[in-house]
Nucleic acid binder design. Structure first.
Length: 502
RNA sequence: GGUCCAUUCGUCUAGUGGUUAGGACGUCAGGUUUUCAUCCUGUUAACAGGGGUUCGAUUCCCCUAUGGACUACCA
């Protein structure tokens, strides 16, 4: 079998959508599974849509995901350059080959003229198609006499090069995911291959580059499926063997209709991009939201692909081993932000307390708290299972760092009894004279004291939690007070009692 | 409008010409927990509709419906 070579070929028109990341990932997994090569090619043939910073964003996104580029604009490689704007001269050459073969022609129609024809057709409920049915009535090197169009060329009149779509021909082709597809060429138009600005369109550049770069498999989004017949024909006209094609289903909105867009993310509070996009209209990123890259990759991988087993957690290596293109689904997948969180939760659980403490310490610094790592490890250990993100640790532990300012009114109403204050003062006395303030020693001591006195455990402990935490939440009471220490605990009892009794 | 693609629980999906249609997320309920959360257990819920083919169709074929993509000198 020939060497597997795949490419991810985004346009630098803005931040890379997670759908694009998934396309890149599937290409990467497919390549690595067979020891093949993953190529990053930048398709920037539309100068008007170029966005500063997008190219770097794409590369950084792949890097964050752990998708390693073998050949690309940064890495180099034997088939470069890997940026289409740097390959400009190549495309003209191949456009000329097509013209010489009679498979393409010059077209002089203005955009305005074609636009008006299109509008006219629309009025009568028809679709204007520039192809064999009408190309003789339009201005091109097929309809015009040879001397006429040659003069136009010499005079430097603007022109485009169009593909000469065959008339009424059944075009058969295969897609690995979708199987056999047939299209009649009469429904297709004479696509522009080469623009008047001297740049190729996607169709030409893509076919030429895929051939020159010896791409064996094209794995791309479903939006390209309608132009696949054109691409097949182009290969045929050049006399080249086409690669194998796979068209990936789209990522859909979590609810409602249509494909996943940035607006959905904004509306429902989840990112649609891997990284924060800092230019112009900014956009949230998974990295900045606190997702781990391996969790993100895992989540993305299972959106439209599954291994056929019940395994859901996959490292990149496991994904590579398990991935096959024929197990990619045919229908679009709705994106589920809840499940995305679940994946991160799973990955966070696997981190050591030390690792999480280091990450949380970074977070705490923004709040001006400096705590040594050993104490943070203990703290993190208390709340680890209940969080999905490192920043959630703060929501679970804020009261460790500051005494409550407010006390939950509902709880006071329900759980604060007339003798709560007195009981807490007794408890305070017990805590004051306790030999050790570690949870393991303190818990049995206090519990047996409560029992001896015949007090109600719930009444005391709930009141205790209320004055220490401010609400009925948080880890084990004795773990909390052991962490904040005797002095702070006693202070919180006093403060709470006087505040609530007011 | 035209062309092409798709359609299993709310969501991601497994699956087979004969299954109690399986798992995960979510939901709900119970258990654990002195609280909350976690966790555990259980529950919930699906083959878009209609025709065929067949002894039998969720599975194969056709039609309809719905959804999607494309329909630019954008990719």
């Amino acid at each position: 079998m020939e060497q597997v070579r795949v490419r991810f070929a985004p346009s630098p028109t803005g931040p890379l959508h997670i759908g694009g990341v998934r396309t890149a990932l599937y290409n990467y997994l497919f390549a690595k599974k067979s020891g093949g090569t993953f190529i990053l090619r930048i398709e920037d043939t539309d100068q008007t849509r170029f966005v500063e910073g997008a190219e770097e964003y794409i590369m950084e996104s792949l890097e964050w995901c752990g998708i390693i580029v073998d050949e690309g604009i940064k890495e180099g490689g034997p088939f470069g350059p890997y940026r289409q704007s740097d390959r400009k001269a190549i495309y003209r050459e191949y456009a000329d080959i097509l013209i010489n073969k009679g498979a393409a022609y010059y077209s002089f129609d203005t955009t305005e003229h074609l636009e008006s024809l299109r509008k006219e057709a629309e009025k009568t409920g028809n679709t204007f198609i520039y192809n064999a049915s009408n190309r003789n009535e339009l201005s091109n090197s097929l309809s015009l006499a040879e001397n006429e169009w040659k003069i136009k060329l010499e005079k430097g009149e603007p022109y485009v090069i169009r593909y000469k779509m065959p008339k009424n021909e059944e075009i058969h082709f295969e897609d690995i995911i979708r199987g056999h597809i047939v299209v009649n060429s009469s429904t297709l138009d004479d696509k522009v291959l080469f623009k008047s600005d001297g740049m190729p369109t996607y169709h030409l550049a893509n076919i030429v580059d895929d051939h020159l770069m010896k791409i064996s498999h094209v794995i791309r989004g479903e939006e390209w499926l309608p132009s696949l017949p054109l691409h097949i024909l182009l290969y045929r006209s050049f006399g080249w063997d086409p690669p194998l094609f796979s068209h990936l289903p789209l990522l859909l909105k979590p609810d409602g209709k249509g494909k996943l867009s940035k607006r959905d993310g904004d509306k429902m509070g989840f990112p649609v991009f891997p990284l924060f996009w800092p230019f112009g209209e900014t956009a949230k990123g998974y990295r900045e939201e606190g997702y781990y890259p391996d969790a993100f990759v895992n989540m993305i991988a299972l959106l439209g692909w599954n291994p056929g087993t019940e395994q859901e957690i996959f490292s990149m290596k496991e994904l590579i081993d398990a991935f096959t293109i024929d197990r990619v689904g045919k229908s679009g997948s709705r994106f589920d932000p809840e499940k995305a969180k679940w994946f991160n939760h799973q990955y966070l659980q696997k981190k050591s307390n030390n690792q999480l403490a280091i990450e949380f310490r970074e977070f705490l610094r923004t709040y001006g708290h400096h705590v040594d790592i050993v104490n943070l490890e203990v703290l993190v250990g208390m709340v680890k299972e209940r969080v999905s993100f490192v920043r959630d640790i703060w929501d679970q532990t804020d009261f460790f760092f500051k005494a409550p300012e407010m006390y939950d009114q509902e709880v006071i109403k329900k759980r604060w009894t007339p003798d709560s204050a007195a009981l807490l003062m007794e408890l305070k006395a017990e805590l004051e004279k306790a030999d050790s303030f570690s949870a393991v020693d303190l818990e049995p001591a206090i519990k047996s004291w409560i029992e001896e006195k015949g007090y109600n455990m719930g009444v005391i402990m709930n009141a205790f939690r209320l004055v220490v935490v401010g609400a009925l939440r948080g880890p084990h009471m004795f773990d909390i007070i052991s962490w904040i220490g005797r002095e702070e605990t006693l202070k919180r009892i006093d403060k709470g009692v006087s505040h609530i009794n007011k």
